[in-house]
Amino acid sequence: MHIITANRLADGLVVFRSGNGRWSQIITSAERLEDETAVEAALEFALADVRSNRVVDPYAVEVVIPALGKDPVPARFRERIRVNGPTTGHSLARPRKRAA
């Protein structure tokens, strides 16, 4: 199973493409693509959003669903870090003052 991810152009944050064509920071709503045809079709839509300058660098990420009703979890650890943020246990970080 795959989902489509990218970075939002204006703020650079990691986003996931949902079935209704929206891009969300929350992985829960990411469209779950069962086969290659579905992935290719979704990537086509994503590239259209690149051309309309909403997102950059879209690609498909392989995921598994650990249990019924749970969020998708990427198969590669690189992608898990990308979803969950740095693993450095950073006590320093706090939200940006300037939000979207």
């Binding site: 970075n7 703020d11 650079g12 944050l13 990691v14 950059v56 660098d57 690189r78 870090i81 990308r82 943020g85 740095p86």
Partner: peptide, 10 residues
Amino acid sequence: NGVYLQLHAY
């Protein structure tokens, strides 16, 4: 101008 696109953000 020193701006990268990294794993999580710019």
